[in-house]
Design a protein around this nucleic acid. Structure first.
Length: 874
RNA sequence: GCGGACGUGGUGGAACGGUAGACACACAGGACUUAAAAUCCUGAGUUCGAAAGAACGUGUGGGUUCGAGUCCCACCGUCCGCACCA
């Protein structure tokens, strides 16, 4: 019998050394084998790994190890998303250089990840802050610049007054910086942009090819891209009322069918006409200023308030020269979308309705909803925005919405204003170009030079990388590169005269938009090694947090396309998608604890008394009661953290991995509980005891199959092979919690079998033990090695093939069939698998509970689903 | 407001339209022990019943079906995303 407990922490170190010495996770391009590129989103080196990392990397590792065992040539790399603000904040607060801080964190976290026993190819490790990485990124930038995919323009930007930097629209959440939480201001600055909008249609269309992505993510991206089909329509302005130099206004609409319901036009505060009209109208100028101030922040909060100002200008209806409409400046019109001007149809749009009611404008219903009567139909204050039949619309009357759209469009296309068609069909996208300029030090320098004579001059490729100066200062806010005494001064690459470097660095999302490409050839002299990229890409299974559903994933999808179009990359298939399959795992959550005086407490500072509703928490230090709060995502601010290091040194990495994979479906949040971890730890000991027991009793490696198996032995064999089949399938589908349950079941069977006897049972038990050892290999790799060695093998489970289940053992000769009467289960029937429907029916009708349930009624019908169920209808 | 997901025992959760509650946690009883821990065995959806058994059970109400946790419709609740996108 097993005497010693399995000492996980000690044995895990041992097996990690064995793996490392054998260098078994080193991946190579092997044309003879099918490839599998498994990738988890690489971490930001914040200092220490957290439980979210443990969960993410445990899942990826199970998949990678399983695929290795299945014979795939696996690429499973790791690196560091190493540029970004926190390093600069650390520099400011603690007077350490961002680089030193970052690399120190990387060292710590690399050590932590290694202690998890992940099957990573560490020879491919990359850090995006290394010039070895970002010099290639600068080359990519230059080539995108040449192709017109990177450009500079002046634009209103989101300025974060705390971080002193520009933010992309995606980084502004509810009017606040995603990192600092500060209210974002609008500023006019010249910025670098990537032309992601050039790919809007392709990025949208190709979402359909991503069938192994969560539907939710595809939908979120589609909404973000925001395609709409409509028309731009030019309206003539009524001469006497128009400002100087303006004789028409162009609006964008998706509903030209509702033109006869129009009662006003509205333009954005930044619209040229609004500006012109403001010139000799101080009150209007003040109103426009007010709108701008509301900008991103307050507008979001006071979304309900629709305000406008009548410019006095009147526009002529495109279908009726005698009909003029007022032109307003309105706070709910965005200059950035469409043409920054609309026509308002109050009956067909709720915003327009609100506006019309506020300013006493006419409301003419033009669409009759299905089932309504034209005579009695009225709208009150609720617009009808759906389809219906046109009314009050002259030549459109009686048409359906679609036909009316087309008819209005046709007429406008053929109708001339100023010699040009008055209307044109137009597709509009919500997606805007990606602003990548950041006024920060710790990022990839944008490799261009500004010359008074030559303008913007790209740094020649031979002069790359443009590296960051080591001796920057971080003692005050603002851009350290800009205030550096010498760094920005250089000679113009074109004319040689004194010039200045670009001091903006790139958004760190650029770094993570192609790291998965670089992993395929991390030491290549060019950004991409074509052969390696062709072999490994796309990523076969990408795993990460749902929080990147839009930003990182959309940028990456854009970036690989830009890399293709600038000659760096080519895909063999007909889509250009970087991630063939995506899985978004849930968060790790934990209870929160608050002391009497309102401070958050770490779980390790709290002890518990009582159970269930009587459960009370007590502050370990003060002995005073603690309020148990809601279960939330583990975060530094709420202190509901459990340190992975503590778990790994106490219970071992396998335990942490196993717990993370147990119970909760991987896409859902998992609640970290002490009891759950302890349970996982107990199971590890149990597996060890079982294997130790088997090895003690049956020390011989599995030999040839005996000719006779007792029923008990056969049951064990069936259980083992069914489990093998099931575990393989569930890992394949990333349903780790089900795989865990299956292994539990097998352990139960195996442990029970040890107290039985019968022909062939030793063989069956030994076989089941050997199978189970390999089955746990992907999930608890260290324990598997220990068990495998105990079973007498000197090979590594990590190098073993995933065993093939015997098909004959996956099906039963005798099947249990449920017997229902009128859909209610009354009994069950054990019958030969090959029994005919008639035999099953006959057997079912003899069952006593069936007869009882029929209560003498005649049988009307019997439905037999072979090997599953019989339903007697009576 | 719009869009989406989800709702199953005390808890986490299983379940190709076919025996609901696998597996685990927690719980209770028992064995082992001087005792405890560890371990092993047993029990358990709810209600009625000593038991056999019966009725009711997957948020609520309808529907489709021989049969619904699963499909359809409406509602309630929870969570997430977007939010004046014309």
């Amino acid at each position: 019998m097993a005497t010693e407990r399995y000492n996980a922490p000690a044995r895990e170190k041992h097996w990690q050394q064995v793996w490392e010495k054998a260098d078994i996770f080193h991946s190579k391009e092997d044309d003879a084998a099918a490839k599998c590129y498994v990738l988890e989103m690489f971490p930001y080196p914040s200092g220490r790994i957290h439980m979210g990392h443990v969960r993410n990397y445990a899942m990826g590792d199970v998949f990678a190890r399983y695929k290795r065992m299945k014979g795939f040539s696996v690429l499973h790399p790791m690196g560091w998303d190493a540029f970004g603000m926190p390093a600069e904040n650390a520099a400011m607060e603690r007077k350490v250089h961002p680089g030193a801080w970052t690399y120190q964190n990387i060292d710590t976290m690399r050590g932590q990840l290694k202690s998890m026993g992940l099957s990573l190819d560490w020879s491919r490790e990359i850090a995006t802050c290394s010039p070895d990485y970002y010099k290639h990124q600068q080359k990519l930038f230059l080539d995108m610049l040449e192709k017109g995919l990177a450009y500079r323009k002046s634009s209103k930007v989101n300025w974060d007054p705390v971080d002193h930097t520009v933010l992309a629209n995606e980084q502004v959440i509810d009017g606040r910086g995603w990192r600092s939480g500060a209210l974002v201001e609008q500023r006019e600055l010249t910025q670098w942009f990537f032309k992601i909008t050039a790919y809007a249609q392709e990025l949208l269309d190709d979402l359909d090819t991503l069938t192994n992505w969560p539907e939710k993510v595809r939908l979120m991206q589609a909404n973000w891209i925001g395609r709409s089909e409509g028309m731009s329509i030019r309206w003539a302005l009524d001469k006497p009322t128009a400002p100087k130099g303006f004789d028409e206004i162009e609006i964008y609409t998706t509903r030209p069918d509702t033109l006869f319901g129009a009662s006003f036009l509205a333009v954005a505060a930044d619209h040229p006409i609004a500006k012109a009209a403001s010139e000799n109208n101080p009150a209007l100028a003040e109103f426009c200023e007010e709108c701008r101030r509301m900008g991103t922040s307050v507008a979001a909060i006071e979304a309900a308030e629709k305000l406008g100002y009548d410019t006095g200008i009147r526009a002529v209806h495109p279908f009726d020269k005698e009909w003029t409409l007022p032109v307003y400046v309105a706070n709910f019109i965005l200059m950035e979308y469409g043409t920054g001007a609309i026509f308002g149809c109050p009956s067909g749009d709720q915003r327009d309705m609100d506006f019309a009611r506020r300013y006493g404008l006419p409301v003419v219903p033009v669409i009759l909803p299905p089932g309504e009567d034209a005579v009695t139909f009225s709208l009150k204050n609720k617009a009808y925005e759906d389809d219906g039949v046109m009314i009050n619309s002259r030549f459109l009357d009686g048409m359906g919405t679609n036909d009316a759209f087309n008819e209005a469009a046709r007429r406008l296309e053929n109708q001339k204003l100023g010699g040009k068609p008055q209307g044109a069909r137009k597709v509009n996208f919500r997606l805007r170009d990606w602003g990548i300029s950041r006024q920060r030090y710790w990022g990839c320098p944008i490799p261009v030079v500004h010359c008074k004579a030559c303008g913007v001059v790209p740094v020649p490729a031979k002069d790359l990388p443009v590296t960051l100066p080591e001796d920057a200062t971080f003692d005050k806010p603002g851009n350290p590169l800009d205030r550096h005494p010498t760094w920005k001064h250089c000679a113009c690459p074109k004319c040689g005269k004194p010039a200045t470097r670009e001091t903006d660095t790139m958004d760190t999302f650029v770094d993570s938009s192609w790291y998965f490409v670089r992993f395929t050839a991390p030491q290549a002299a060019t950004p991409v090694n074509a052969k390696a990229a062709k072999y490994w890409l796309p990523v076969d299974q990408y795993i990460g947090g749902i929080e990147h559903a839009i930003l990182h994933l959309l940028y990456s999808r854009f970036f690989v396309r830009a890399m293709c179009d600038s000659g760096h990359l080519s895909f063999s298939g007909n889509t250009r998608e970087p991630f063939a399959a995506l899985f978004t795992q849930g968060m790790v959550t934990h209870e929160t604890y608050k002391s009497e005086d309102g401070f958050w407490l770490l779980p390790s500072d709290v002890r518990f008394e009582g159970e269930g509703s009587q459960r009370k928490a007590i502050d370990v230090l003060s002995g005073r009661p603690v309020t148990i709060g809601s279960i939330e995502k583990m975060s530094k601010s709420k202190k509901n953290l459990v340190d992975p290091d503590d778990i790994i040194t106490h219970y071992g990495a396998d335990c942490a991995r196993w717990f993370m994979l147990s119970d909760s479906p991987p896409e859902r949040d998992v609640i970290w509980t002490e009891a759950g971890v302890a349970g996982a730890g107990r199971f590890i000991q149990r597996v060890w005891r079982i294997i130790d027991d088997v090895a003690e009793r049956y020390p011989e490696k599995l030999g040839s199959k005996p000719s006779v198996f007792s029923p008990e032995a056969l049951e064990v064999r069936k259980a083992a092979h069914k489990a093998l089949d099931q575990v393989g399938k569930t890992i394949e589908g990333l349903r780790f919690n089900v795989a865990v349950a299956t292994i539990h079941e097998l352990a139960n069977v195996l442990s029970a079998a040890l107290s039985k006897s019968g022909d062939g049972l030793p063989h069956a038990i030994r076989e089941a033990a050997e199978l189970m050892t390999r089955m746990i290999g992907p999930m608890m790799p260290h324990l598997a090695e220990e068990c495998w060695a105990r079973l007498g093998y000197n090979t590594l489970v990590a190098n073993e093939a995933w065993p093939a289940a015997e098909p004959g053992l996956l099906v039963d000769d005798q099947v249990t069939i449920a017997v229902q009467v009128n859909g209610k289960r009354r009994d069950e029937l054990v019958i030969s698998r090959s029994a005919t429907n008639a035999e099953v029916e006959a057997a079912a009708l003899k069952l006593e509970p069936v007869l009882r349930a029929l209560e003498g009624r005649t049988v009307k019908k019997v439905i037999v689903v072979p090997q599953r169920i019989v339903n007697v209808v009576g």
